[in-house]
Structures are given as structure tokens and as C-alpha cells.
Simulated assay, not measured.
Amino acid sequence: MIGQMFENSRLSMRKLASDERGATLVEFGFVAPILVVLVMGVFDLAHTQYTSALLNGAMQKAGRDLTLESAGSQQDTIDGQVINIVSEVLPNTAEVDLEKLSHFDFSDIGQPEDFNDDNLDGICNNNELFFDMNDNGQWDPDRGQAGIGSARDAVLYTATVTYPRVFPMAGLIGLDENVTLAASTVLRNQPFDEQDRTLETGNCA
């Protein structure tokens, strides 16, 4: 009797081992998470690229609008247009930061304010004389002055967009939960007046 039970158990195990019903479901269970993350990743990348293209296009148009003589009174309108264009494809919690820095010339963009490096340490300190090119009373690593400046000034206009990812896959593959995009345009104001090159000086702390 025990032998018969053993034989029946062996036959049942053999049948179970050869039974392939449900194998597809099990295989899909292994593949599905990877497939879902891959699909969401593709859509997330596509959304990011589309948003970046919209942002760059909006900045280029804003750059052209800001070169006009009437730009001084239209800054809020131009800024609003940039924000409205990118906001159409972004979550409500997205943040759009706009910055305008005016410079005397294109070569000044991204450059620090000049100073007399008396101790040759490459740092503005020890009461060294500096040229306050942006007129804010302190030495700055970027000599740009906030705003669009005046006649003939070169302006660096930058937009930075930060928003939570549209597709919830960041935590699954170790990405940041937020996306940050930036776009810049450089323009020169129309020469409807003369540039003011008057410079104040100060002393570094």
C-alpha cells in the first residue's frame, strides 16, 4: 500500500513538472515590471525633450522681443509669455525662474568683476580694490547687473524650470524626483541711447 502511494505521488509530481499551463502568466510577471519602467522612461524622456524644445523656442522669441526699444515697459508681458508657453505642458507645481543680467559687452558675460589682486592669491580679499561693474556695492563672480540694462548692453536672459516628473518611475531606477531644465538667450539692446560706462570702486573684505 505504501508502495502504491509512493508510485501515485511520483506520477503526480511528474505530471506537475510537465504541466506548462500558466507558464506565460509567470513569465509575464517577471518581464512586466521591466517593461513598464522602460515604457514610462521613454515617455518621460520624450516629455522632457518636448518641454526643453518649447522652453528654448519661448526664450528665442523673448530674446527678439527684448531687443526692441519698448522692451523696458514690456518686460512683465514678455516674461509672462515664456511662463505661459512652458506651463501648458507642465504640472501645476512647476516653478519657472527668470533671470536677466545686463553687461557692457558680450565679452563681459560670465566674467567676474575686475580687482587688484595685490597678494596674488586669485581671491578678492584683504581690502583689495575692485571695480563695481554691476553697481551693487560688493565684489561679484559675475559682473552682470540685474535687469535688461540700457542702450547697447548685452543681456543674458535665462529661464530655469523645475517640475516633478510626470511619470512615477524615478524611484524605481534611482533618478531625481524632479526635472530641472534651463535655457538661455543672449541679446543686445537697440542703440537708442549712449552706454554709461561710469564705474564705482570698492574694497574687498
Rank of each mutant, 00 (worst) to 15 (best):
E95M: 11
L199P: 03
L35V: 13
A53R: 14
M13E: 03
Q81N: 01
D196Q: 01
T185G: 03
C204I: 00
L55W: 12
Y157D: 02
Q111S: 04
A53G: 12
E95T: 15
N116G: 04
E113I: 02
E113Q: 14
I78Y: 05
E194A: 03
Q81D: 07
V39W: 15
R152T: 08
V31P: 05
Q195G: 00
F30H: 05
I34P: 02
D132P: 11
D193H: 02
D79W: 01
T67I: 06
E99Y: 13
A151P: 06
E177W: 00
T48H: 03
T201S: 09
L156N: 08
T51M: 14
A94D: 10
L90F: 00
G110D: 06
A58S: 13
V161R: 10
G80A: 03
V161L: 12
I83M: 07
L172V: 09
L120Q: 07
E7R: 15
D196L: 02
C204Q: 08
Q75D: 02
S70L: 05
D140V: 10
P168T: 11
L175S: 14
V42I: 12
N127C: 03
E113M: 13
M59R: 01
L120S: 09
F192K: 05
T198Q: 03
A182P: 01
S73K: 05
Q190C: 09
A23G: 02
N203M: 06
R197M: 07
A182R: 12
